[in-house]
Simulated scan of single mutants.
Amino acid sequence: MFRAHDADEGDALLTRLGALTAQARELAKVQRSRVELAVALQRGMLPQELPEAPGFRLAVGYVPAHRGLYVGGDWYDAFTMPDGRIGLSIGDVQGHNIEAAAFMGQVRVGLRALAHVTNDPGELLARTNDLLVSLGADLFATCTFLRLDPATGVLECARAGHIPHIWATADGRSGAEEGECGPPLGVLEGAEYPVTCHRLTAGSVVVLLTDGVVEGPSLSLDEGLRRVRGLAEINAGAGLGARVLADGVMRLADRVGHEDDAAVLIISHEADAGQRQPPSIARGPREAGGPPSPADPAPGPADPPAGPPGRNGRRGV
C-alpha cells in the first residue's frame, strides 16, 4: 500500500509538471509572437529611404532590442519638409514592450503630419507634445528634431529631454549640443522647446543617437558620448563619410552590453574638397545677432526672413 501510494503521488506530480510545462510553452509562444509583432512594427515605422541633397549625406544604424521579452521604442526619421528643407528626428520611448513600439509610431507620424502645419523645430515639438498629452497615454518619449537647409548649411535644433548630439569639424574641433532642452514629449501640456542654430561647413558631421548606443552595463553615458566624439573627430578629419561613421558608432553600441534599442542618424557635409570653406561649425542662439559660443568664434548665420511670432516667443519661419 505504501509503494502504491508513493507511485500515485509520483504520477500526479508528473502530470502536474507536464501541465505546467505545456502552459509555459504556450505562454512563451504568445510572448514570442508579441515580440515579433513589436519588432515588425518598429521596422515598419522606420523610413525606407532617406532624403538626398547636394553636398550632404545621411546614414543610419539601428538594432532593435528583442532579447527575451525586451522590446524598445527607439526611432529615427528623415523626410523632405513642404518648404524643401529636410526634417530629421531621433527619439526614445519610455518602456520596453509592444505598447512602447506603438507609441513610437504615434510620435513619428505626429511629427510628420504636424510638419505640414509648422516647420519651426520648437513649434513642431510643442504641437506634438500637446497632441500626445491630449491622447492621455501613460508613456512619454524623448526626442531631438532638426531642420536642415541644404542651400545654406543652417541646422536648427530643438530637444525634448533627449541626450545631446555630437558634432565635429574637419579642422579637428568637436563637441556636444549644449543648447537648452525642453521636457520629454507627452508629459507637460504647453511645454516650450527652445531652438538653437548651427551652420555646417564642408567636412562637418553631426551624430544623433539614442542612449542605447552609448550607455549600458559596461559603459557610462559620459564615456559613451566621449567615444562617439572621438569617432566623429577622426571621421571628419579624414573625410571618411557618413556611412563609415554610422558603422563605427554601431560597433561601439555592440560593446556597451545594453539590452536597449540602439539608433544613430548621421548628417555629413561632403562637398568637394575644392569647394570647402574654412572648416568650422558656427553655433549660437536662434535669435538673429545672438552671440556665438565662446568655443566657436565664427559668427552664426543670419536668420531667414521672419514670419509671424511662434508660441516660444520667437518668430517662426
Results as ranks from 00 to 15, higher is better:
Leu231Met: 09
Val264Arg: 05
Gln48Thr: 12
Pro150Val: 09
Gly68Asn: 04
Ala100Phe: 13
Ala53Leu: 11
Glu215Lys: 11
Ile98Gly: 02
Ala170Cys: 04
Ala170Tyr: 07
Pro301Cys: 08
Asp83Arg: 08
Gly290Ser: 13
Pro183Val: 00
Val207Asn: 01
Arg243Ser: 15
Arg159Glu: 03
Leu13Ser: 09
Asp149Ser: 12
Trp167Met: 04
Ala273Met: 08
Arg251Asp: 10
Leu14Cys: 05
Ala78Tyr: 04
Glu177Gln: 06
Leu114Asp: 01
Thr169Glu: 06
Glu259Ala: 14
Glu36Cys: 05
Glu26Gln: 15
Asn119Gln: 14
Gly310Cys: 12
Val228Thr: 06
Val154Tyr: 03
Phe145Leu: 12
Ala262Met: 05
Leu50Gly: 02
Ala40Thr: 06
Glu223Ala: 12
Glu26Asp: 12
Pro308Cys: 07
His96Ser: 09
Glu178His: 11
Ala242Gly: 01
Arg112Pro: 02
Arg147Met: 13
Pro305Cys: 10
Leu20Thr: 04
Pro292Ser: 15
Pro194Val: 09
Asp303Gln: 12
Pro184Ala: 01
Val207Trp: 05
Leu27Asn: 11
Glu177Ser: 09
Leu131Phe: 13
Tyr76Asn: 05
Ala100Lys: 03
Pro294Met: 08
Glu223Asp: 14
Asp74Val: 06
Glu189Gly: 11
Ala158Lys: 02
Val63Met: 08
Pro304Lys: 10
Leu13Ala: 10
Ala271Cys: 09
Val205Gly: 00
Pro51Phe: 09
Cys197Asp: 00
Ser293Thr: 04
Arg16Leu: 15
Glu287Lys: 13
Ala22Pro: 01
Leu124Asp: 01
Ser204Lys: 04
Leu245Pro: 01
Arg25Gln: 14
Ala282Pro: 00
Gly91Asp: 03
Pro54Ser: 10
Ala160Ile: 05
Leu139His: 11
Leu50His: 12
Lys29Asp: 11
Glu192Pro: 00
Val207Phe: 03
Pro291Arg: 14
Gly307Lys: 02
Cys181Gln: 04
Ala141Ser: 13
Thr80Glu: 15
Gly230Arg: 14
Glu49Thr: 14
Ala102Glu: 07
Arg311Lys: 11
Arg255Asp: 13
Glu156Met: 07
Gly61Ile: 04
Leu14Tyr: 12
Ala19Pro: 03
Ala113Ile: 05
Glu99Val: 13
Met1Trp: 14
Ala232Trp: 11
Ala176Ser: 07
Ala100Leu: 03
Phe79Val: 08
Glu287His: 14
Ser280Lys: 09
Gly172Leu: 06
Asp77Ala: 13
Arg127Leu: 15
Ile98Phe: 13
Gly316Phe: 12
Ala306Leu: 12
Phe2Gly: 04
Thr128Asn: 08
Thr196Phe: 15
Arg199Ser: 05
Ala262His: 08
Gly289Phe: 11
Pro194Cys: 02
Arg112Ala: 08
Asp261Ala: 07
Leu139Val: 00
Gly230Leu: 05
Ile166Trp: 07
Leu208Arg: 05
Arg227Asn: 08
Gly274Arg: 14
Asp149Asn: 14
Tyr76Cys: 05
Asp130Trp: 14
Asp272Ile: 01
Ile267Arg: 05
Asp6Gly: 01
Ala271Ile: 00
Leu188Cys: 04
Gly284Ala: 11
Gly230Val: 03
Phe79Leu: 10
